[in-house]
């Protein structure tokens, strides 16, 4: 297994948001600024990696019939840890992310990786898979939030970006989230199609 190849798979070939279209709710809701997007990505990466490792360790113990509830409890445990840590050390970020911190629990990426990968592979592979998928998620969130923050509030990481540019507030609001992900996804597909030689 090549680490480099795995990273490419997580970020480009099987990017959870832009290619597989998983975990859409948090990615659209928190990508209003780069800080929020990055924070959410890190939180999800932590939960994904830890739950992947634990589920992979327990994969021979968990009975097949009740595996989904078991996965959910394991994931919920790590989400609770994240919630408490965020509340204690990063209260501002916790307020910004709000309801979407507890909602990491129902993020389809995490349950999806647990079901499709961690419950079938050994601990080391699952750890790498969790990290790689988490990085892909964070990367896509960062792209979305950079676009939305620049267009919507004319800022990048909280600093003024282009002087004299009137920000389009709609990009911070709900519709802008949908438009941004549509075009980013379109660009990714266009590039993918070009690579495969499908032209139009």
């Amino acid at each position: 297994m090549m680490i480099g190849q795995e990273i490419k798979r997580g970020i480009i070939d099987e990017n959870p948001i832009l290619v597989l279209a998983l975990g859409l709710c948090p990615s659209l809701a928190v990508s209003t600024s780069v800080q929020n997007g990055f924070g959410m990505g890190m939180a999800a990466t932590f939960v994904l990696t830890c739950s992947n490792v634990i589920i992979s360790l327990l994969r021979k113990v968990i009975p097949d019939k009740v595996r989904i509830p078991c996965f959910i409890v394991i994931i919920a445990m790590f989400v609770t840890i994240v919630q408490l840590v965020l509340k204690a050390y990063l209260p501002a970020l916790d307020k910004q992310l709000g309801i979407f911190v507890p909602l990491i629990v129902v993020n389809c990426i995490i349950l999806g990786r647990a079901e499709a990968y961690a419950s079938r592979n050994n601990v080391f592979k699952s750890l790498i898979d969790g990290l790689v998928m988490g990085v892909g998620f964070t990367f896509a969130l960062c792209i979305l939030s950079v676009i939305r923050e620049i267009l919507g509030s004319n800022k990048l990481l909280g600093f003024k970006f282009v002087p004299g540019f009137q920000p389009m507030t709609v990009f911070i609001l709900a519709p802008g989230g949908f438009f941004t992900i549509a075009f980013v996804m379109g660009v990714v597909r266009y590039i993918g199609n070009r690579k495969r030689g499908v032209r139009r």
Partner: peptide, 23 residues
């Protein structure tokens, strides 16, 4: 629909227009 926007991306744009109306 342009090839790259087929399927999900065009659905996102539709949803965006609907969200604009709901705004």
């Amino acid at each position: 629909v342009p090839k790259a926007l087929e399927g999900l991306p065009i659905a996102f744009i539709t949803a965006g227009l609907m969200a604009l109306a709901f705004l």
